[in-house]
Design a protein around this nucleic acid. Sequence first.
DNA 1: AACGTGCGAACACCAATTTC
DNA 2: GAAATTGGTGTTCGCACGTT
Length: 559
Amino acid sequence: MKTRPATKNSEVLVPCDQCFRRKIRCDRALPCCVRCTDAGVGCTREISRRQAGRKKGRGNVIARLRIKSSEVEWQVRERRRSSELEERQTSCSERPEPKNLFPVGAAISPGSDGFLRSDTQSQSKTDLSADTPGASMSPYARQGMRWQVPEVPGRLLSSIPDLPRYIDLFFAHLYPIWPIISESDFRETLRYPEKLDLSHVCLVLSMCSLTALHIEGSADSTSEPRNSLAQAFIDQCRQLRLTFDYIGNGSIVTVQTSLFLSCAEVEFRRTRSSWFLLREAVMLAEELGLYEVDYLSPTIERNKGLSIRRTLYLISLVERGLTVLRSKPFSFIVFAPPEEAFEDENPDVLYGLQSLSRLFSLLDKKFLDAWVSYTTMPTAEFLKEKFTDQEKLDILAAQEKLAAMTFDRKRLTEVQLVDISVTQQWLRLVFWQFSMRKGALSSVDGTPEPFRCEFPRVIAQSLCLGLSTIRKEAIYTHGIAIFERMFEITYSLIDSLGFNDTTLQGWGDLQVLLRVLKESPNSPVTYAQILEAKLAEQQGTDDRLRSRSQYAYPLYSKT
DNA sequence: AACGTGCGAACACCAATTTC
DNA sequence: GAAATTGGTGTTCGCACGTT
């Protein structure tokens, strides 16, 4: 994007950044304008203004309006569809009903069982427009969209069954992975329901869905790990979003909601939804100017600034992870890893976050660019691109860095340790896969280990070693991302077992990984099935393999 | 190619509204 | 009631395209 310098020349000063942001007249005094002097803040001119004038491509506005209008249509259609579906389901009694945590969009009153039931008289669109005229009405409402009765956030929250337990579980187990909300601030906010808005309710619902998804036994005990309760939380959140101007009232809370929803959608393997929600979080953060948080930091509370920084940093981690796993394009907003802790936070949480950022720093722009072109380009084309010596050195350096990277296990929670151990080994696999596609693998003596065909055996061994001292509950408290990474490592391990294996180590590791993938409730059943089918196929062609695979390796002891 | 014109994008900041 | 926020308006800039 074209920008112009903050100061055109020494005579004609632009308004200072503070006045610019506040949209107020700036007297442009140097070195500090009157308003900044009064407010006691630094008077800067660092924000680069965008070039005024027409941008390339005509008709952007009308194009956006068309998209928006089709979105609105889609929303109306979806809502009609879901209400029809609901009707059908209620009329079909033998089918298990999805849990309705509370009926969004209807006047509500407490039910006897702790859930809420809807009043029969829900207000119509005309009632609504009469009730909420004027400036506060959203553009959708002005366009005649069917907006629903504004909910009372506090009442909605109190209607979520078992809410305090979910919040406790979130902060006890998931917070070390998503330390983006100050626990004390969050709890303080919930203490004043009258000050809450619907964005907060959405955030809480998205947190609940993640908790339900990740923590074994947090929901009713069912054999289905992708439990319906998590889905119900997502549904309610999505429905609630439709009842108000979710984006228009956006804040860091909204960005966090979209991020959590995106992560929850990943668990259901709804790739498109999860990617869309992640982009929503990125775009909204940009629109809200959150990327200027460092510049804003003197004027906003420390915790809020930290929450923003961490949220943005986590978005960039998730994005990089998805770029590699799903070959999605990336916007690559890189933030410096957060260096501060929330006041009430265990300092080890920060250490965990920094450890993760040490790992992800290897997925730099250069590598991701190459990776995306590697996955989108046909293999033959890709191989034509020479693997230059410099690239080889870069990959080797990254592999050496990864192999040598150690973490203070005492300072990490077990949940974090799983995250970091699996990610570390998975990154080694990613760089190895990249080398493979570049045709750089070899089994010739003297080939550096990371360029050897059997390298996945080394990776699997390190992974098993890393996990061997961790209780399995800590492994189970993870989402699909971890299992997908383990799956990939195991998949490559099976491949590599065919290459002059002289020890039983690889087979033992395979048994361990297979068992973890099979037994973890959050690991999709298909992972184990695919691996077993692959194994069977490979054994079918090789008797030598068949005899070895029967060897049970008791490294992963049940605790 | 030079010129004229229309129009979209970004800007500055007024003024109304909201918050404290 | 002061300060902060924000919806809204007028201005400026310069690209794109039609005309000469």
